[in-house]
Every structure is written in structure tokens, then in C-alpha cells.
């Protein structure tokens, strides 16, 4: 059973890294704006396989992703590592303690919100140190994050249904998907 779980984590982490790298190719109106597509994978893992799987995928994705872009231990790494860990924890807590209150989309929005808030906080404490910049940026970031969070949540929700259905068909056996 543990090896099956590790296999799943490795596979999902690979998907997350691919999405993470892919979204860097998509041009956005603001250079620092990202869709957070990798969060689709984290959320799916969190709902289906629990906190450990979700957190492992986030940590692997941020670390390996930073190797690919050459930002390991740099400022961008610090921002995405901190925000990734906090937003995964926030989503895990929601899944665990408020499972009936929020659906998949809601959990995704919560993840996006905590991601942005953590990035703003780290950016303020470590880099900018100017509160007006944070105040100006925060509504813009929260707006973008809420929209992308909703879209990611919808995709993740479809993915969860798909995996559940295929697992039901194969009677719970591990498939390549």
C-alpha cells in the first residue's frame, strides 16, 4: 500500500511539474501573473489521497520546478515555496474540518487566496518592505486569484470525478492514469 501511494505521488508530482513549467510559456498581461495550474494536481491529490500526498506534491513541484528554471533558493523560490506550503495546508485544513461546507471550487479558491496572501506577506517582509505597495497589489492579486482559483477548482473537480469513476471501473486497481 505505501508503495502504491508513493507511485501516485511521484506521478502526480510529475504532472504538477509539467503544468508548472508549461504555464511559464503562456503570456500574461502582467509578468508575475500565473494561473496556478499545478494547484489542480495538488487539490486533486489532497481530496483523493490526503494531506501527505498533497504536501509532498507541492514540495516536489516547487523544488524540482526551481531546478528547471534555475531559481532554486532564490527570491522566486522563497515566494513559491512559502506560498505553496501555506496554501496546501489551508486547503488540507478545509478538506479536513469543513468538508461539508465547501465544495472543490471553494477549496480551490481558498488555496488561491492563501497563496496570494502568503506571497504578499513574504514579499513585504523580505523584499519590498513598503506597505503601500502591498495594499495596492492585494486587491488585484486576490481578484486574479479568485478567478483562476475558480477555473482550477472546476478542472480539479472534473479530474476527481474522472479518477473516481475509472477507479470504480477497475475495482480500485491502480492504473496508469
Amino acid at each position: 500500500m505505501p508503495s502504491q501511494n508513493n507511485l501516485r505521488i511521484a506521478l502526480l508530482a510529475a504532472y504538477a511539474i509539467a503544468l508548472h513549467a508549461f504555464e511559464k510559456l503562456i503570456p500574461t498581461p502582467l509578468p508575475w501573473m500565473r494561473f496556478g495550474l499545478a494547484n489542480i494536481i495538488t487539490l486533486t491529490a489532497l481530496v483523493l489521497y490526503g494531506f501527505r500526498a498533497g504536501m509532498m506534491i507541492t514540495v516536489i513541484r516547487v523544488t524540482v520546478g526551481s531546478f528547471l528554471t534555475g531559481t532554486f533558493l532564490g527570491p522566486a523560490f522563497l515566494l513559491s515555496f512559502g506560498a505553496g506550503v501555506v496554501s496546501t495546508s489551508a486547503m488540507a485544513l478545509t478538506v479536513r474540518y469543513l468538508p461539508r461546507l465547501f465544495g472543490t471550487v471553494g477549496i480551490s479558491i481558498i488555496g488561491a487566496l492563501f497563496h496570494n496572501l502568503t506571497q504578499l506577506m513574504i514579499a513585504y517582509l523580505v523584499f519590498i518592505k513598503r506597505i503601500e505597495v502591498v495594499i495596492i497589489l492585494s486587491p488585484v492579486l486576490i481578484l486574479i486569484g479568485t478567478v483562476t482559483g475558480t477555473l482550477n477548482g472546476l478542472v480539479s473537480s472534473m479530474l476527481i470525478d474522472g479518477i473516481k469513476e475509472s477507479a470504480a471501473e477497475t475495482d480500485g486497481a491502480v492504473t496508469a492514469e
Binding site: 465547501f102 471550487v105 486576490i142 477548482g153 473516481k164
Partner: peptide, 21 residues
């Protein structure tokens, strides 16, 4: 099947959108 949208999700979405705008 998992629940895509629950009432709290809609509330959260509308709340965050209106607050940020």
C-alpha cells in the same frame, strides 16, 4: 461524484470578487 459548487463556494466567490473589485 464530488460536489463542485456548494452554497458556501458561491458566497466565497461573490464575496472575494466584490471585495477585490
Amino acid at each position: 461524484l464530488n460536489k463542485r459548487f456548494r452554497p458556501a463556494d458561491i458566497f466565497l466567490l461573490v464575496f472575494l470578487l466584490s471585495m477585490s473589485v
